[in-house]
Structures are given as structure tokens and as C-alpha cells.
Amino acid sequence: MTTDHGECWLCGRPLGRRVEWHHPIPKSRGGRLTVPLHPICHRSIHAVLDNGQLARLRPEPSALRQVPEIDRFVRWVRDKPPDFHAPTRRRK
């Protein structure tokens, strides 16, 4: 089963069975727009950046990819299947 949401906002891979919705500008900072993500991509964003940091970035994937940890993650996950899952570690 595939979704009709197309591709992941962060990594650009086709979406799989599970889709999570992310606010590029956090709701707590007035964001209303949501974008579709793989669960692993969503968890990776929040493992690296808090809401304050997200609010200071431009609300587009290219801005997130300028963060070294997120860029490294996107390069690592780009060849994985849409429903790939792995544990996500929080930044220390």
C-alpha cells in the first residue's frame, strides 16, 4: 500500500505506509503548515533541533540540511526503502 502524499519533505524518498506530519514552523511559534515525512525523518529532526532552533531556520528542507547532523542523516537514509526504521538517538 502506498500513500498519495508523494515524497518525504526532508529526504525526498517516496513515502511508505506510515506518514507523519511535521510543522516546519513549530505550532508553539505560530506554525500552521504541515508537511509529510517518514517517521524516521521526523524523529531525526526533533532529535537534533528543538522548537526554538526550528523556528529560527527557514521552513524548507535545504535550511535543515545545512545542519551537519541532519545532512549526514539524509545522505545515510537516501538509499533505504520507504518503510525503513532504525532507532533514533538524541543529540547530546
Rank of each mutant, 00 (worst) to 15 (best):
C8G: 01
R89D: 11
A47R: 11
D50Y: 06
H22P: 02
E69M: 08
L10H: 04
T88Q: 06
P82T: 05
H38G: 01
V77F: 00
R32T: 14
G16R: 14
K27E: 11
H38P: 03
K27Y: 07
P87W: 00
T2Q: 13
R91V: 11
L64V: 02
G30T: 06
I25A: 00
E69W: 03
Q53S: 14
R13C: 08
G30K: 05
C41M: 05
P59C: 08
G52S: 13
A47Y: 08
E60D: 14
H38F: 10
P87S: 06
I70C: 10
A86Q: 06
E69V: 01
F84P: 07
L10N: 12
R58F: 07
G30H: 08
D71M: 02
F84V: 10
K92P: 14
A63N: 10
N51L: 04
W9Y: 05
A63C: 05
I45K: 10
T2A: 14
V48W: 09
T3R: 10
S44C: 13
H85M: 13
G31V: 03
S62T: 05
G12R: 13
L15I: 06
D83C: 13
R75G: 06
D71S: 14
A55G: 12
L10M: 02
N51I: 03
E20I: 03
L49Q: 13
D79K: 12
D79C: 10
L10A: 00
L15F: 00
V35I: 02
P14K: 12
W9V: 01
L54V: 04
C8H: 00
V74E: 02
R91L: 15
R58A: 15
G6F: 06
R65E: 07
G52K: 14
D50K: 13
R32H: 11
N51A: 14
A47L: 09
R89F: 05
L64S: 02
R43C: 06
S62G: 03
P26N: 09
V67R: 12
H42G: 08
H42S: 08
G31T: 07
V77K: 11
D83G: 07
L10Y: 04
L33A: 15
H46P: 00
E60Y: 11
L57S: 08
L54Q: 14
L49P: 07
S62F: 06
D4V: 13
P39L: 12
R65G: 01
R13E: 09
L15G: 04
G30Y: 05
W76G: 03
A47H: 08
L10Q: 06
K80H: 09
R58Y: 10
K27R: 15
W21G: 10
G31H: 09
L54I: 11
T2K: 13
P61V: 12
D83W: 06
C8P: 00
W76I: 01
A86R: 07
R13I: 04
R17I: 12
T88Y: 00
E69H: 04
R72A: 15
G52I: 06
R72F: 09
R90V: 03
R56H: 09
H22C: 07
G30M: 11
Q53R: 15
R75C: 13
P82Q: 02
S28I: 14
R43A: 15
C8N: 00
L54H: 05
V19F: 00
E7F: 11
R78P: 01
P39Q: 06
V77S: 03
V19S: 05
P61I: 05
K92Q: 15
V19Y: 05
A86K: 10
R58K: 15
G6R: 04
S44G: 10
E20Y: 04
L15P: 01
R29L: 11
